[in-house]
Amino acid sequence: MTTAATNLAETIGQELRLPDIDPEYYVYAVYDQASCQACVDACPGKAWILTEESLGLDTDSCNGCGLCVSSCPSGALHMHFPWTIRHFG
């Protein structure tokens, strides 16, 4: 594979492994005094950044393990797992 194709494949692979936040189920958007930080506590890479204003994700620290998704009690986090990823040479 060419360098450009390799870089594109790596970028797509990184984007696919990152969890998404569903704003309809995000507890801090629903409740003013929410205190949940299950995703932050479950993350081995400490990729989740929780402040008083927002929840963010350090994409460089996220390894895509999905532990945050399974720990979220409100179901606000989810990941997209493609059926197959094929690399063409």
Rank of each mutant, 00 (worst) to 15 (best):
T2V: 04
T2M: 09
T3N: 02
T3M: 00
T3F: 08
A4H: 03
T6W: 00
A9D: 04
T11S: 13
I12Y: 01
I12F: 03
G13W: 09
Q14E: 12
E15A: 14
E15Y: 10
L16F: 07
L16M: 09
P19T: 12
D20G: 00
D22M: 01
P23S: 10
E24P: 00
Y28C: 00
Y28T: 08
V30Q: 15
V30E: 03
V30R: 10
Y31R: 15
D32A: 08
Q33P: 02
Q33G: 13
A34L: 03
S35G: 15
C36I: 05
C36S: 02
Q37W: 08
Q37M: 06
A38P: 03
A38I: 03
C39T: 06
D41I: 02
A42L: 03
C43K: 08
C43I: 07
C43S: 13
P44N: 06
P44K: 03
G45E: 15
G45A: 15
G45Q: 14
G45D: 15
G45R: 12
A47M: 09
W48N: 03
I49D: 12
I49A: 13
I49P: 00
L50H: 10
T51C: 12
E53F: 07
E53I: 12
S54H: 05
L55E: 10
G56N: 11
G56S: 15
D58A: 11
S61G: 01
S61F: 10
C62Q: 02
N63M: 15
G64Y: 08
G66R: 06
G66K: 10
L67K: 13
C68H: 02
V69N: 02
S70E: 15
S70Q: 10
C72W: 03
P73S: 06
S74L: 04
G75S: 07
A76M: 06
L77W: 04
M79R: 14
H80T: 11
H80S: 05
F81A: 14
T84N: 04
T84K: 14
R86Q: 14
R86H: 02
R86G: 05
F88W: 12
G89S: 07
